[in-house]
Amino acid sequence: MPLILGVDLSAYWATTLLKVLVVLGLIPAGAIILGYVFLLKMMSHMQSRLGPMEAGPHGSLQLVADGLKFIQKEDIFPERSDRFVFAAAPIVVLLSTFLLYIVIPAGPRLIVEDLDTGIFFALAVSSLSVLGILMAGWASANKYSLIGALRAAGQLIAYELPLILAVVGVVIQAGTMSLQGIVMAQAEGEIFGVGIIGNPFIFTQLIGFMLFLVAAQAELTQAPFDMPVAESELVAGFMTEYTGFRFLFFFMGEFGTAFAFSAIGATLFLGGWYVPGVEGTLADVLGPLVLGAKIMAVAFFIFWFRFSYPRLREDQLQAFAWKLLIPLALVNIAVTGVLKVAF
């Protein structure tokens, strides 16, 4: 029975409180880390410029300063907006981001809730954000917002499918939908009899991993699939009318989801928190660090695409999803199934 400062941490209320605090801290932290490392610094250096340098060492506190700025801004409702829906939309988007973190394991015991249907839950709640985006677009009473929201809806629904199908291969191979179980399956697996690094599914499910990255890119509405917020066409898409802390919610939702998807990708394909040869409490300490490193690796790819590629058109995007990604994912599932039975 672990006791810290005389509080029984295994008590239901205590664990719940702890988990809530961790998740509440984790999402802004994840958003800020991703935003700083990739949006501000990696992008700047790729574009042969420095990026912010003043706030904090090497500009590291820039996003904190930006967040404070957003909070201070006036909370503006467009005159003809649907005020309730307008106000609720960012919260719905952020909510879906929060829910994602529930099932991601960061160590043998570091998981908010180890659901048996973990990956299913994660993919289901991630599509909740569509609702928020549609609400935002509709309630803004702005044509750009509306077009952006409808684009987002079409896009997210179309890409939900390849995302799920890409994951199915992993689920078949692991034999479980629990994310913790998938990590363990990779840890206990072996490659041609060599079990030193386990069997990260990226080797067997390379196609699945690529499909996952592409579909996640679309789910995150990042370039080359950023039509919902296409700034050169739709100003800022569904976010056009949002200012201040509501815009901050969207921003956090965007990067928080990117963080979560990177985490899911790292868990599904790169072995999650698992470090070879480390078990027990030490794994609980090292796990988050390892997972963090893997998250950064996956996020690096996601953002690299984002900064390099131009944007597709909405119809081209749909064609890409339905004519290429989904058939490819189905083939991948079939091959995985056959091999699963064979071996």
């Binding site: 574009q47 042969s48 370039a223 080359p224 950023d226 700034e231 390099s308 590629y309 944007r311």
Partner: peptide, 13 residues
């Protein structure tokens, strides 16, 4: 042209 198509890097070059 790149930035109008959503590619943000070329314009900086």
């Amino acid at each position: 042209m790149g930035i109008q198509l959503g590619a943000i890097t070329p314009v900086f070059y």
